[in-house]
Nucleic acid binder design. Structure first.
Length: 610
DNA sequence: TTAGGGTTAG
């Protein structure tokens, strides 16, 4: 026979997950007068949290007269998994000062999780010091959460030290460290460690593949997924699929992406929201915005990520009207936009010249949704103002905003004042930018061009010196295209031998046709001390042109050409691709560093906003 | 009661 308290605990645990059942259990405890008897409040707090009712859990916590360690650790665990892990800090303070309790191993593990979620190495190290000096310093679960914390905070070497101190290592801690190495760009160590895991399961594979994709090594991620399938690992949940689909998105691997869509269907994960979200993003990044929309419309339950992914997709494809309409639908559906949604929305307005609408959205962030605009929002908003010619207002914004402008902020203003030929402001902004010592080579090129156009040759020399001193070279440009089932990668200035004649012949023919239409090369993006005709030759061999030429030669007549470039399209290539789309009457879509350009009939979807 | 793998921007 169970005691009344034990019976109550069992009833609450059974109710966890269902809000109404947990509330019912709470009401019964109130009636029976058991609600303040430990461990009932602690178990109720966990049950509320598991039913997505954190506010109820916090309320109950405040109402409980005697708060013991059990109650604190339940609440801290709940908060550490919630959307606002930072809430743990005041709770911890209250525990230490108001209730003078010393943290036990449960509390320590939760605080390590909180530090990991907040990416706060300072808090994590403080916690580690407390742990070492505590009576729980041998606890392996706390050590595991410290391993995860150090990985998430970007110091896998510190994680390794804790890992090595664990006597009986289980799959949880192996997985944490593999994920940590991979996502911090240490793929060799991740693979080596992965190879030594006893009994690798789906979790470890997912951690490894996900880490590689996160670190930008999507090719290895996809290869490992193939190996995982060959190994016969059963796909019991949707996580690994969502990860590998996002790898395909990153690579713009359209054929692979469609295959994965098929696999998701066969394996029965098409109704999974995370898979649906990843598919929307994949189609959008593979430049097929219509399929992205089709998948989106088919998703029955949409969360904020579903909506935001679609909004951002429409924005990057330059479809501002669609993005705006989606935003209204989202709000009507009762989904609250987050900070990423607003980045997408302001971006959409910026790239369509919708100044009033963008202004309204920027103001609405704080007023209607209680979201404090971050530096990115200010930069997006400044981009909107300056692109549309409101240069002074944009400069004023930099002076009054509550953040220090960074490279991107000044860069946005610089390209706008260059566009509107405001020489004075150009120099002012360029000087500010040079002070910052940008890391991106394209910024230096922009700077140098601005100084050159304004005859400030001493500053041009200074920029060059800076670049040499910091060993910054122009990032090598490359583009790729998927033809049939194969990828073809093109580097600027390098034409593969086997197709050299065809490509050069095709491009020569295009130049002749283009010149008839008034084309004059714009060599301002070439930063070499070269003669004009040599500069033109450089442009002629830009990677995106080689890839597009290859696609037009090798793909079926009438098919859409989809190319991805690692950098931003240069001004001249933009003009050339518009002309080529008109001459050959084909649709060409280029995904560059920041957006999509749909070239058709001599026009680009970006309407020169890029 | 505590620890690991997931989808959106830059």
């Amino acid at each position: 026979m169970l005691s009344p308290a034990a019976a109550a605990a069992a009833a609450i645990r059974a109710a966890a997950g269902s809000p109404s059942a947990v509330r019912g259990a709470h009401a019964r405890l109130l009636k029976e007068g058991l609600v303040h008897h430990s461990p009932a409040p602690a178990i109720l707090v966990s049950a509320y949290a598991k039913s997505s009712l954190l506010p109820d859990a916090l309320h109950l916590f405040d109402e409980t007269p005697r708060r013991d360690l059990y109650l604190y650790s339940s609440l801290l665990a709940a908060v550490s998994h919630s959307v606002s892990p930072a809430l743990a800090i005041p709770i911890l303070r209250r525990m230490l000062s108001a209730d003078t309790l010393r943290p036990d191993h449960f509390v320590l593990a939760s605080i390590a999780s909180v530090s990991a979620r907040l990416r706060s190495l300072r808090l994590g190290r403080q916690l580690h010091a407390h742990f070492v000096a505590s009576p729980y310093s041998g606890d392996d679960v706390v050590k595991s959460s410290l391993v995860d914390m150090y990985c998430k905070c970007g110091v896998p070497d510190d994680a390794r030290k804790v890992f090595d101190s664990i006597c009986a290592k289980n799959s949880v801690v192996w997985t944490a460290l593999v994920s940590g190495y991979a996502s911090n760009g240490r793929s060799d160590e991740a693979l080596q460690l992965f190879g030594s895991i006893p009994g690798r399961g789906l979790f470890s594979w997912t951690a490894l593949i996900s880490g590689l994709v996160k670190a930008g090594e999507s090719v290895s991620g996809v290869e490992l997924f193939v190996e995982m399938r060959r190994d016969g690992v059963r796909i019991d949940d949707a996580f690994v699929l969502s990860v590998v689909i996002s790898g395909a998105a990153d690579l713009a691997a359209f054929v692979l992406g469609r295959q994965l869509h098929g696999s998701a269907m066969r394996l029965g994960f098409l109704s999974s929201m995370i898979v649906g979200n990843a598919l929307v993003d994949m189609y959008s990044k593979c430049s097929d915005i219509h399929s992205a929309r089709e998948v989106f419309e088919g998703i029955a339950l949409r969360d904020i990520i579903t909506w935001t992914t679609m909004v951002v997709g429409e924005a990057q494809h330059g479809r501002a009207e669609e993005a705006l309409a989606l935003f209204d639908r989202m709000v009507l559906a009762g989904v609250k936009p987050n900070e990423v949604t607003f980045v997408g929305m302001i971006y959409a307005c910026s790239h369509a010249g919708l100044v009033q609408k963008g202004r309204q959205l920027f103001d609405s962030m704080k007023q209607d949704y209680d979201i404090n605009p971050g530096l990115q929002h200010y930069t997006c908003y400044l981009d909107l103002l300056s692109r549309s010619g409101h240069l002074l207002e944009a400069e004023e914004l930099i002076a009054t905003m509550p953040y220090e402008p960074d490279e991107a902020t000044w860069g946005a203003l610089l390209s706008a004042c260059k566009k509107y030929n405001d020489a004075e402001m150009c120099i002012r902004v360029a000087d500010n930018l040079l002070e910052l010592r940008p890391k991106d080579s394209s910024t230096y090129i922009l700077l140098s061009n601005v100084y050159a156009v304004n005859g400030k040759w001493d500053s041009v020399a200074k920029v060059r010196k800076c670049m040499t001193g910091l060993e910054i070279r122009k990032d090598p440009g490359y583009s790729w295209i998927e033809v049939g089932r194969e990828f073809h990668l093109f580097h600027a200035g390098e034409v593969p031998h086997d197709v050299r004649e065809e490509i050069m012949g095709f491009l020569d023919e295009m130049v002749l046709e283009m010149r008839k239409r008034g084309y004059v090369p714009d060599t301002s993006s070439v930063m070499h001390d070269l003669e004009e005709n040599e500069k033109e030759h450089h442009l002629f061999l830009h990677s995106e042109r080689l890839a597009v030429a290859f696609g037009l030669i090798k793909s079926p007549p009438g098919s859409v050409i989809r190319v991805v470039k690692n950098l931003r399209l240069c001004v001249d290539c933009h003009t050339v691709l518009k002309l080529i789309s008109e001459i050959v009457q084909r649709k060409i879509i280029v995904r560059d560093h920041s957006r999509f350009h749909h070239f058709e009939g001599g026009k680009c979807s970006c309407s020169e906003f890029w």
